[in-house]
Amino acid sequence: MNDAATFKQQAGEAAAALVEPGMVVGLGTGTTAIFAIRRIAARWRGGELPGLVAVATSTKTAVAAQALGIPLLGDDMPRAIDLVIDGADEVDPALDLIKGAGGALVREKIVAQASDRVVIVVDASKVSDALGSKALLPIEVLAWGWEAQLRYLTGLGATVTAREADGRRYLTDGGNMILDCGFGTITDPAGLAATLETRAGIAGHGLFVEIADDVFVAGPAGVEHRRRSRTG
C-alpha cells in the first residue's frame, strides 16, 4: 500500500470509531470512504455494532456494503440518519468542501443534509487554502438541454468539460450528466452555491458549504481531527 492509500485508510478507520450500536449510518462514496466502510463492517461482524443499519450514497457503495454484510435501509430513507462518513476532493480552512469526483454528489448531499453529524475523511493532499485551488467543481445537470448549462457556466467564468468514462458520456445513478468546472480560486463558495441553485437544469453541485461537522485529515504526522466552529 502506498503512502496516500495508507493515509486514506488511517482517516477512514479513525472516523469509523465514531459509529455506535443502533446507529443509522450514511456510507459515502470514494477511495477514502471505502476504508471507513470496511472498518464499520468488521466491527459489525465482530458484534460491536448491534442494530446498525446504513444508507448508501451510490449504487457502487451499496454493492460494496452488501458484499461486506452491512444491512441497508431502502432508498426512501425511512429513518433519520445519525452520522454520515464520506470523503472529499478538497477541504478549506472553514471545513467547506468540494465533492463529486466519484459522481455521487447529489445523493451524497441529500444524505449529508439528512444527517445529524457529517464526518469527512481525507488525506492531507486534499487540504487547501481556498476551494478550487486543487479540485474542479463537479456540477450535475439534466442531460436534456445540457449544452445550455455549459454555456451558462462558461458565462460565469468557468472552463467546462463534460465528464466521460470509457469514451462515453458519464451518467450518474440518477441518469444525469456531470460538467467538471474550473473556476480557479473560489473566493465566495456560499455565493457561487447560491447562484448555481437558482438555475433550472442544474440538479446539484459539489460545493458543500457549512455542511461538514468533523474532518479527519491523515498525513505523515498522523490523523488530525478538525471540528467546525459553531457560533450562536
Rank of each mutant, 00 (worst) to 15 (best):
M1V: 07
D3G: 10
A11N: 02
A15F: 11
L18W: 12
E20L: 15
E20F: 09
V25P: 07
V25Q: 10
L27C: 03
G28T: 07
G30T: 13
A36L: 06
G46S: 14
E48I: 10
G51F: 03
A54C: 15
V55Y: 04
A56C: 13
T57Y: 07
T59W: 04
K60E: 15
A62F: 00
V63W: 09
Q66W: 03
Q66A: 15
L68C: 06
D75L: 12
D76H: 09
D82A: 10
I85W: 08
D86H: 02
V91D: 06
G100D: 11
V106R: 09
E108Y: 04
K109L: 10
I110A: 12
Q113P: 05
S115D: 13
D116M: 13
V118M: 02
I120L: 07
V121G: 08
V122C: 06
S125Q: 05
S125C: 00
A130D: 00
G132Q: 02
K134W: 08
I139R: 06
E140G: 02
V141E: 07
L142Y: 00
A143F: 00
W146R: 11
W146A: 06
R151S: 15
V160N: 04
T161R: 15
A162M: 15
R163N: 11
E164A: 14
Y170P: 05
G174K: 01
D180R: 15
D180W: 14
I186M: 10
D188G: 01
P189C: 00
L192K: 02
A193I: 06
R199S: 06
G204F: 02
L207M: 08
F208M: 05
V209G: 03
A212M: 09
D214C: 10
V217T: 11
V217Q: 04
G219T: 03
G219N: 01
V223L: 06
E224P: 02
H225N: 03
T231W: 00
